[in-house]
Amino acid sequence: MWGKKDNPPPAPRPLPSAPPVNPLEVTPVASPSIARPSEPAARLVQAHIGKSVIVKGEISGSEDLYVDGEVRGSIELRDHSLTVGPNGKVEANVIAREIVVQGTLNGNVHAGDKIEIRKTGSLLGDLTTARIIIEDGAYFKGSIDISKPGQKTETPRPSLTSATKPPVQPSLQVAGAVEPRKI
């Protein structure tokens, strides 16, 4: 009580700095990284495609994905979210539970839960989703089809089907090419 000093709160552990991106390695694609401070705490683990990485091919997985580089092909994350970061350029048909666009996404998009186009975001394509949020300043061109919960909708079936995929080990798969991106 007297003279007892309050224990100072433990200093927050600094976030580990992101590993330097080696353009010759593909590890940024599948390696989980610490979520950004602005992301919800629940999504502590998400795969991260850094801004120097280009992926051409099919991505499927069972974890959240953050794309700040380029992806051309298709993305299927049925029960997880895709975030296209401010530097991200995605040209792909996308299936995910939730999709947030801060960069550029060209392709048809099916979200089981929500699509959010932030003010810096640009989305060209046909959308099917239960909810959509478009911030002022965001660019969208295409069609919007709102699917009510429980409503059977036409889900785009890219060449990735769960029947043809092995069990989710590793949790994110890339079929195609990964190459460095000139920044």
């Binding site: 969208f140 061109k141 069609s143």
Partner: peptide, 25 residues
Amino acid sequence: GGASQANINIIALQGHKLYTEDLLV
């Protein structure tokens, strides 16, 4: 007139399919 959250709420949430274009852009 371009994508608008308000117009999406009125039209798409009522079950209609809404297409958006911005002619001025």
